[in-house]
Each structure stands twice: as C-alpha cells, then as structure tokens.
C-alpha cells in the first residue's frame, strides 16, 4: 500500500490544524510536538517537526522518497484550556481508531469553533477572583468590593483594547494605568482604604502565569529557544503592567 502525495498532504494538514489549535490556546511546546508526531504515526507517516511559540514547521516523508513541508505562522496567543483538553482527548483517541481525512478535520473544526463561556460570565469570574483574592490577604470588605469593580472594568478594557491594538503589550500597559488610577480614585472617595490591596486584586488575573509556567516547562523539556521566548513574554507583560501602575501612581499620588 503506497502512500500517495495526496495522503501525505492530508496528514500534514490534520497535524498542522491540531498543532495550531494547541499553540494558540497556550499549550506547552512538547505537547504540540508530541501531538503532531502522534498524529503522523497514527497515519503511518514518518515526520519531523519543529515548533516555536510563533510558528509550526512539519516535514513529512513519503515511502518513495518524496517529502512535503508545511509552515504555519501563529500570530494570536490566548489561553483556552478547554481546547487543549479537547485536542489532547482527540490525540489519545487515535490509539483506538484512526478517522479518515474529512472526519478528522470535522472533529478539529468543531474543537476550534467550540463555544467559550459567555463574556459576562468571564467578567463576573474576574471580579470574583479579585474579591476573593483581596479577602484572602486580609483586606476589608470595602476594599474587596472596590477591587472587584475595578478588575471587571480593567478586564473589559483589556479585552476591547487587545482586539483593536496591534501591539500586544499595550493592553497590559493600559490595564495597569486604569487599575492604578481607579484605585486611587476609590481611596480618595472612601477614606481608609489600602490602595495596594485594591490594585493587586484588580490586576492579579492579568498576570502572565501561563507564560511563566510554560516557559519553565519548556526549559524542562529542553526547548530552550521557546522557553526564553515565553519567559521574556512574561517579563515584558509584567513590566508593562508595572509601568502602567507606576505612571498612575506618579501622576495622581
């Protein structure tokens, strides 16, 4: 049974698609590479893959010496754990049964367009995070309510700014400014509030925990290039938030 050119193409397309969903949802590099290799193996195609946080490269080798290479540039990076879970389950299911091209693409398509939690629920979850976080650090109930309100506003701003801006760190910078100035405003309106507790509560959800832990995990699996990439991403994000907060403090305090 010779594997024809069309087949090679189909397999790399399935692999690229799975890899793209994983990488844009914030999976670790080794997971993306591992999934791509598993998919190729399931279709009995020999392949070589190289993944960095900004792109995927796959070369598949045919039986009669032909090779085919696909390059996929990854521009957006978000956090969507549900998609990582779903692609992981898909990759596990290949052990039992290998679907044909159109079926596999359908499964991946439905994963890609799977509905997220509605925006209002995420907004509410953001405020709940801020509320509980401030209480955890022994803040008063006024402080936690203020932090909850501000964090909802900041989240709203950030989601909207990120959607229009071309510069990814601008969103973090503006979040910092908004969080800082609103917290100072609240502390002026109601006396006796600790500004720092409100600010920390408001920005805790925007801290790049994913980039940081992924960066370290990539280093653990030997993907030093990607690890440096992600740790710098985390560092710049924190720096942008801090610069925003510092600017607000400088101007208003």
């Amino acid at each position: 049974m010779g594997i024809t050119n069309v087949n090679l193409n189909d397999v790399t397309r399935i692999a690229i698609k799975a890899g793209k969903i994983l990488l844009t949802s914030g999976a670790e590099i080794y997971r993306v590479e591992d999934t791509i290799t598993r998919i190729c193996k399931a279709y009995k195609v020999e392949c070589e893959t190289f993944v960095v946080p900004t792109g995927i490269f796959i070369t598949a080798y045919g039986k009669d010496g032909e090779t085919i290479t696909h390059v996929k540039r990854i521009k957006e990076r978000t956090i969507n754990i549900k998609k990582i879970e779903a692609v992981n389950a898909f990759s596990r299911s290949l052990n039992n049964r290998v679907p044909d091209y159109s079926e596999a693409m359908n499964i991946l398509d439905s994963i890609e367009h799977e509905r997220e939690y509605p925006f209002w629920l995420k907004l509410a979850a953001t405020s709940v995070t801020a509320f509980a976080f401030v209480l955890l650090f022994k803040g008063t109930s006024y402080e936690s309510i203020a932090a909850a309100l501000i964090s909802a506003i900041v989240y709203f701003f950030k989601e909207r700014v990120v959607q229009v801006s071309l510069f990814p760190f601008l969103g973090f910078f503006i979040s910092g400014i908004v969080a800082g100035s609103l917290s100072i405003l609240f502390s002026v309106l109601i006396s006796g509030l600790n500004i720092y507790k409100i600010i920390i509560g408001a920005i805790v959800i925007h801290l790049p925990g994913m980039a940081m832990t992924n960066g370290i995990k990539d280093a653990l699996y030997g993907d030093i290039t990607s690890s440096m990439n992600r740790i710098s991403e985390a560092f710049f994000s924190v720096a942008a938030i801090c610069a925003g907060v510092a600017l607000a403090l400088l101007v208003f305090l």
């Binding site: 999976a27 754990i81 720092y196 920390i200 509560g201 832990t213 992924n214 510092a246």
Partner: peptide, 25 residues
C-alpha cells in the same frame, strides 16, 4: 487523563507574589 496545566495554572493564583510586587513599584 487531561493535561496537568489545567490544574496548575488556576492553582498558583492564591500564592502569586502580588504584595511585594506592588511595594516594589
């Protein structure tokens, strides 16, 4: 049978060093 990140990422939220970070700024 899920990736470990699912539990790691939300789990670290309560212990992030927010307070010293703010004081630094």
């Amino acid at each position: 049978k899920t990736p470990a990140t699912v539990y790691t990422l939300p789990g670290i939220f309560p212990i992030v060093p927010g307070v010293p970070a703010y004081y630094t700024i």
